[in-house]
Design a protein around this nucleic acid. Structure first.
Ligand SMILES: [Mn+2]
Ligand SMILES: [Mn+2]
Ligand SMILES: [Zn+2]
Ligand SMILES: [Zn+2]
Lengths: 136, 136
DNA sequence: ATCCTACGATGGACTTCGTCCAAGTCAAGA
DNA sequence: TCTTGACTTGGACGAAGTCCATCGTAGGAT
């Protein structure tokens, strides 16, 4: 993420304090925050930032491919800045913690031709579920 | 699903016309309806059925393991009556069509020990994405 | 350094999806 | 047939997210 601001400027983004602080909040490993969590942390640095701006900025980052949306079951979407490193997710069924993982197989290849219904399969998402050490 | 009503009676369910019609709507292959779609189709047979009852019944069927909740990206949950046959999903990025598929690998085994972070991994969900023949 | 203006920020209304509740109804056992 | 507690209902409520009219400002032009 360290070069994110530079890439965004290169794409013609007007660099505002709001966008800067959202980008700063989305930094680190295993970061999978909800929009509200991003807003909370951004507001700690920039109290006047609005929810709408956080949603707008997250949506733009997703459209640019800089951030991934992680779908959850019945909960708020989570935003994942680790978009440059393809990975999958391990989710704790107890506390909801999300970790990035890298399985070794080729899941797309595991789908037989006769199971593809003529689709052009382009990507695969894998979610592992279980209990983390703290919740076990 | 044909024996669903029998199983539910065996579990002590009071058999109402509402529950019967919801169970009837959830019949067939590759069925992945939203709660609103279930309500719409149920109301075609039983006009007075309420949204609350559809949500209640779906929630009970999920709790009993008779129906699976399928998470979608930012849209309404989908309900999958094909719970007795373990499977994964192939989703069209164009029209949203969902098909049941059966990959051949062992995805859980593909997650190396050092990538498990001490979790007790119990299940894995795989979503294949691509364009269906109609959308390609 | 100042000006301009189109792009971005704001907050509040609105939508969608889902939950909750008090009151009324009815399935099924006695 | 009677009784009763499980089930249903409509509407209020809540959480997550979108939309929009208006205001503010980043950054190029002068
Ligand atoms: Mn991730
Ligand atoms: Mn299915
Ligand atoms: Zn946990
Ligand atoms: Zn399609």
């Amino acid at each position: 993420m360290s070069d994110l601001l530079g890439r965004l400027r290169g794409r013609g983004w007007r660099m505002t304090s709001q966008r800067r602080v959202v980008a700063e909040v989305l930094d680190g490993d295993h970061v999978h925050l909800t929009a509200d969590e991003v807003h909370l942390r951004a507001a700690a640095r920039l109290p006047e930032i609005s929810r709408a701006t956080v949603y707008n900025t997250l949506g733009e980052l997703v459209a640019l491919g800089e951030v991934l949306e992680v779908s959850t079951v019945g909960r708020a979407k989570r935003y994942d800045p680790n978009a440059r490193n393809p990975h999958q997710h391990l989710v704790c069924s107890g506390c909801g913690t999300v970790r990035d993982v890298h399985p070794v197989g080729n899941a797309i290849g595991d789908l037989p031709e006769e199971e593809r219904f003529g689709f052009a399969v382009g990507s695969v998402e894998i979610t592992y579920r279980g209990l983390c050490p703290g919740c076990a």
